[in-house]
């Protein structure tokens, strides 16, 4: 992510929690934000809090993070055959640290957000921004009401408050500018129903130059299948 990412980071607290519907694109957004923060010279840590998904997760980017000087904290058995959601003690330590930039990638709906709830007191103490990621093309008939309900369930499970919505609407490789533009009213509606402001819209770098939307976040696609 280029300049857009750095600008967005200025609006956020040093501790950034990324949550949302599974498959909304939380991991890809987290990777982009983390790389942007590292590029601007911040000391960055990323916590893979996904205790639900067996694969396609932040822990896949260990190599990329190492090159960028980003510290990765992942569930002890991530990407192994052990389906055991155990978070390492370094999660609490990283939140307590209070210096540098911290990202928490929270997997899988409200079920995944339960694990986050265990750290709510520490997060309240540090202060945080909590991004709720939305892809309006994940459902055949997207309902702002259901989106708002999931957001509230995540808040309940995590005992934290969402501070921003991020529009991450995409159709993978078939994403066009129209796909993103068509999603703007949906985000507005979710924002109206939840009272949470929209931080911006993530758009692949190839699309970003052709788009004029407020708070555009040019992103790269890092989450890819193994043959591409």
């Amino acid at each position: 992510m280029s300049k857009g990412g750095e600008t967005v980071l200025e609006h956020l607290k040093s501790c950034v929690i990324v949550c949302g519907h599974y498959g909304a694109g939380k991991t890809n957004l987290t990777v982009n934000l983390a790389l942007a923060a590292a590029q601007s010279g911040e000391a960055v840590s990323v916590i893979d809090m996904d205790v639900v998904n067996p694969y396609f997760r932040t822990a896949d980017f260990q190599e990329l993070f190492r090159e960028a000087g980003i510290q990765l904290i992942a569930p002890i058995y991530a990407n192994t055959n052990l389906d055991l959601p155990v978070l390492p003690p370094s999660v609490g330590a990283a939140i307590r640290e209070k210096t540098g930039r911290l990202f928490l990638d929270v997997g899988g709906d409200d079920d995944g957000a339960v694990a986050l709830g265990g750290f709510s007191a520490l997060l309240e103490e540090r202060g945080y921004s909590m991004l709720y990621v939305v892809n309006s093309r994940r459902e055949l008939e997207p309902e702002p009401g259901e989106e708002a309900a999931l957001l509230r369930r995540i808040q309940t499970a995590s005992r934290l408050k969402v501070t921003h919505l991020v529009n991450n609407t995409n159709l993978g490789p078939e994403t066009t500018s129209e796909v993103l533009l068509q999603s703007l009213p949906y985000l507005e509606e979710v924002s109206k129903r939840t009272g949470v402001p929209v931080l911006g819209a993530a758009a692949e770098e190839r699309l970003a130059p052709h788009l004029e939307a407020e708070g555009l976040l040019p992103v790269r696609v890092y989450v890819k299948p193994p043959w591409s």
Binding site: G23, R137, R138, E139, L140, L171, G172, E174
Partner: peptide
């Protein structure tokens, strides 16, 4: 034909 949506293989199978 429905509109294009982005889905996991497992979800698409169920739908």
């Amino acid at each position: 034909m429905s509109e294009r949506v982005l889905m996991k293989g497992n979800e698409a199978m169920a739908e």
